[in-house]
Amino acid sequence: MNKPDSCPISKEYPQILVAHGGGGKLMHELIEKMFIPTFQNPLLESRHDGAILELGNTKLAFTTDSYVVDPLFFPGGNIGTLAINGTVNDLAMCGARPMYLSTGIILEEGLETNKLRSIIKSMGQAAETAGVKLVTGDTKVVDRGKGDGVFINTTGIGIIEHNLQICPASVRPGDAIILSGDIGRHGVAIMAKREGLSFETTIESDCTSLEKVVLEMLEANIQIHCLRDLTRGGLATSLIEIAEAADVSIQIEENAIPVLEEVQGACEILGLDPIYIANEGRFVCFVPPSQIDQTLQIIDSHMLGGQACVIGTVLETGTGVKMKSCLGVNRIVNMLSGEQLPRIC
């Protein structure tokens, strides 16, 4: 006999909202209250970008992600480049060398074959650049109106060739928090294209793969404590997640966070805060303060623009994330409910 469903989410939200996928509080509630209790196991409960699997003497990172972006093509990339780089980056954030990917592609009836061709071509190029092989896949077609052109899932396996534990639990008071470059480009590029907003210059997504920079940091013996790419929910949400998982307090400085002038302008017009906007090629890393200079140098040698910087530190006491405003006053940084919505005025 079926037991009555006691999931608190279904009582509160009889229907799934878009906000349940927005990277904010509602998405975390869904994961915490529905998914984790159902599948509970220590690997899942580590709440990392991927699971770390130990098979005999081999340590593997294993991760999956689905891509549902509208528009399919945007300045700086398309859904195909995202699908490869996103999963490669999740593996890189586990400190792994990305090796193999699988993909599941769901196509909508009526999609122009030429569009699919160029998405697949981009996937091929991105995989080659990242040094991964796409070794298995699946294709399905759904009726017109039941998909958004293309949905792509990619799953990845990477190999971990060091003994560091790169995860929130390794974060220590005193750690320096290094941001790899300016934030907010991807989210603003997508929004501008989707909504037909035009700015004086075209803002390009920062979509790129991060495995090379991470591997070089590891080769240089940087004692990385934690890595996180700043996708949905942006810098703020990533730092809050790490602070919560590591049970530490994080202090950052608003003035230290680089934002491209065009991105800032778009954010001012729309009433958005860049610290919550998605990126696809930016990450934070937590390292001992003695290795700041070396880390910055390695990141800048890989990233266009060379704007890696220290944005804050891990405090001895407290919990959550605090940010010193440009006026020098501290405030808390909270997770949003879902995605940011543009304001009326």
Partner: peptide, 8 residues
């Protein structure tokens, strides 16, 4: 509230 103006 965001910039903490009242605290100054």
């Amino acid at each position: 509230v965001k910039f903490g103006i009242d605290e100054l």
